[in-house]
Nucleic acid binder design. Structure first.
Lengths: 123, 123, 123, 123
DNA sequence: GTGGTCTAGACCACC
DNA sequence: GTGGTCTAGACCACG
């Protein structure tokens, strides 16, 4: 499944992009599989269809999804590779956050404690 | 010292606030010490002075800094305590980022690897 | 300058992207130069700001432009290179159109005549 | 024969219409010849039969094809003339694309190079 | 039903 | 002033 946190500082459309990339990276969606429909996703996430459409469009531009008029959206053949390079982006953002946390005064053991705790609630 | 990443998604003024709080939490700045000058900081960080001024102003409102007549702005007596509660905010943001990274497709061992690597370059 | 044909089948936002890339490829805009502001462009082109924003955002994602909060948008250092690879896209689209024209019944000399005529009105 | 590019921005049904008009303009299909069967075309092009049916229906409305009782659909007597006027449309689209390519940053010699290359692979 | 584009207007944050 | 995001609703074209 795919969850979103509407109160996060991370823009909703990026959360959706990340979520879809995650599903592919984990193998829950494989090349050729139909991606969730824009309107459907919008409804389940309680989000404006435009917001989902934007996320999907950008994934199409990146080559992760393949959208065909009237047929729906499909995971692209090269998606795993693209999603993999997308992971670099995610990793980059994470390291950014780690640096910010350090600069904000957290010690490395604080950071590791946070990892452990977050891991407990979302294993 | 205090470093900023101008291309981060985190607003510059928040980076500055975080950085100053970090200096206090680590004891590099103690109560009564003069806060770094706005113009000086702006120059070394290559940032708009308004942005620094805003960060300082907000820290004063939070009680981390103290604007004393004649002395300029100094670190408040209660700053370490305040900075400590600021840490909760930093921690919260970090955990948010960890969750986003997970949703973006990173495994927990990916996360731990990222922690190790970031730790190596910024110990 | 930058012109748009609102009645073209080509989506407005793509026309804008193409136009900006063209300005860079031609050297009219160099790395570091400020790109036209979103609201300004929207006004001169008589187009909704959202549409321009979308074009700009996508060029930012491609690495052609560099947008900084509150400061405006600037041509990225790597823009000429990126714009160059963008040219491949333009070239690809053109060849697609040429093939379509052939399939639609035009002879190659028809095609060449069309090139000559278009060249005359827009040298 | 008749080829289609399913990933082109040009709608499939228009590609089919263009292709059929092209066959007529080139004389590969003459007045009175039976139009290709919808199901057969759909199968060879790997396209939804509805899409082919739509193309055919519109060509009938335009007078390029003729639905004769008992004979099925055949090329209309006036088809070559109609196909000829259809060429104007094709030509118009081509000139639009040329203009877009120019605005996208291609020089006229780039355009001519593209023509030469496309001509080589699809003479 | 599907995706795609555009407009309109609101709100936010940064400089 | 700048860019950025989101919502809402309309319209189009394709299958």
């Amino acid at each position: 499944m795919l969850r979103i946190d509407p109160r996060s500082a991370v823009p909703i459309n990026e959360q959706i992009k990340g979520g879809l990339r995650g599903l592919i990276a984990r193998g829950a969606l494989k090349p050729g599989d139909p991606a969730p429909s824009i309107r459907g996703l919008a409804e389940t996430l309680k989000v404006n269809p435009n917001t989902v459409a934007r996320a999907v469009r950008e994934l199409v531009l990146e080559g992760v999804l393949d959208a065909r008029r009237g047929e729906g959206t499909v995971v692209a053949d090269s998606a795993p590779r693209m999603a993999h390079s997308g992971l670099d982006e995610v990793r980059g953002r994470l390291r950014e956050s780690l640096r910010q946390a350090r600069r904000g005064g957290l010690s490395w053991s604080d950071v590791e404690a946070a990892v452990r705790e977050t891991r407990k609630e979302e294993p």
